[in-house]
């Protein structure tokens, strides 16, 4: 598995798209830091960018990679290698290289602006961490969608739709629920709903750490009670991990049974 991971990792890392992805983060982070001139504000802006871009790019990359490496996979399948090793290796290789592009692309400008001597280092680490986790989640989801769809176009469509639902539509639904059930205490429901979407969960985790919690009034009190405690933090981490583990397990399950 490790060998396949390595090949896949280098293969992706060498591709033009990963370099472009890296350069995108490098340039946009430098620009954000330059224009905001302030670490904390820069982190918030970068969060806005990365919470949209990382899931989108990871999804597209995942689907593309799966369909493109199909022949390579078929070749490997003819060798005496465990199926799960091939697929999980590929998954990890792609996820690692995407996370690496993101982490390197953002961390270099922040180091240049002196993140390690500023007080924001923990907030920044959280951002990096959630960004990497999001890459793993969305590559996993993309692989799952692609293995379920032989048809490339259909797979692509469903993957993009999945991204759209999580990044935009889900928040719209939350808002609709809030507005229609305005007379009820919604804070606990909000915690639950946020936990069900990795993008929202990452956003709230970063926002609460970025000292914006006071804006949220009573809602934040409930949120802080949940996310501020060790249990809440563990729960949200578990929720994020769940978003990695379940799609990948499902993907592995289908990969084992698939007739190539």
């Amino acid at each position: 598995m490790f060998k396949i991971l390595k090949y896949s990792f280098y293969d992706v890392l060498r591709s033009r798209w990963t370099v472009l992805y890296f350069l995108f983060f490098l340039v946009s982070t430098f620009a954000l830091l330059y224009f905001s001139g302030n670490m904390s504000k820069g982190i918030v802006s970068l969060m806005n960018v990365s919470l949209t871009i990382i899931p989108l790019i990871s999804t597209i990359f995942g689907v593309m990679h799966y369909y493109n490496s199909r022949e390579f996979v078929e070749l490997l399948l003819s060798q005496p290698i465990k199926r799960s090793d091939i697929f999980i290796g590929q998954y990890l290789g792609l996820s690692f290289s995407l996370s690496l592009s993101f982490v390197a692309g953002t961390i270099i400008p922040f180091i240049a602006y002196g993140i390690f001597v500023s007080s924001e280092v923990w907030n920044f680490s959280l951002l990096i961490f959630t960004g990497a986790i999001l890459s793993f989640i969305f590559v996993g989801l993309a692989f799952l969608i692609s293995i379920l769809n032989e048809n490339k176009i259909k797979g692509f469509g469903i993957a993009i739709l999945m991204w759209l639902c999580m990044a935009v539509v889900y928040d719209g639904l939350i808002l609709m629920v809030f507005i229609s059930f305005n007379d009820y205490p919604l804070e606990k429901a909000a915690v639950l709903m946020v936990n069900l979407n990795p993008i929202d969960l990452s956003r709230i985790m970063i926002l609460l750490k970025l000292d914006i919690s006071a804006l949220m009034g009573y809602t934040a009190a409930v949120f802080n009670q949940y996310f501020g405690t060790t249990n809440g933090m563990i729960m949200s981490l578990l929720s994020l991990l769940g978003w990695i583990v379940f799609p990948v397990l499902l993907f592995n399950f289908f990969a084992k049974r698939k007739d190539f």
Binding site: D171, F178, I179, V194
Partner: peptide
């Protein structure tokens, strides 16, 4: 305006949907 009417919706702060 939405936050004023429905305080709980502040959890959507900085989400893409809200920007749109």
């Amino acid at each position: 305006y939405i936050v004023e009417q429905t305080p709980a919706s502040i959890i959507l702060l900085r989400s893409l949907f809200i920007d749109l």
